[in-house]
């Protein structure tokens, strides 16, 4: 279980619709687990700056990565959060990863 607030960046086309949908789903999961989360949303043009200034733990997108992701940030494809298929598997993978960074 993460002992600190996990920082997550979501990216999608305009940084609006899909980012918000993914954000809501992940926040729900974190709340159920009792984990602290802080999130930022943006389009692919914005995220390199957010990587540098905010240093997130996770980067979740729809589809590909869109940009070069630093090694310190783990990328996940957030598609299951949008289409409601494979969501549990994604949550399990995120949880497993979070275990490794503590």
């Amino acid at each position: 279980m993460p002992s600190r607030t996990i920082k997550v960046v979501f990216a999608c086309g305009a940084g609006v619709a899909q980012c918000t949908a993914m954000d809501i789903q992940l926040r729900k999961f974190f709340k159920e687990k009792g984990w602290a989360i802080e999130t930022k949303k943006g389009n692919y043009g914005e995220v390199p700056g957010t990587f540098r200034s905010w240093k997130p733990d996770l980067y979740i997108t729809t589809g590909g990565t869109g940009v070069t992701v630093p090694d310190s940030i783990k990328h996940f494809d957030g598609l299951p959060l949008i289409i409601n298929r494979g969501k549990e598997d994604l949550f399990n993978r995120i949880a497993a990863y979070l275990e490794t960074i503590e």
Partner: peptide
């Protein structure tokens, strides 16, 4: 088929380069 936002396709590097 689950109908979703076309924005899902944007994560491909080719689309980003085109946009810029």
């Amino acid at each position: 088929l689950i109908g979703v936002d076309g924005g899902l396709l944007i994560g491909r590097p080719g689309s980003i380069v085109m946009g810029v």
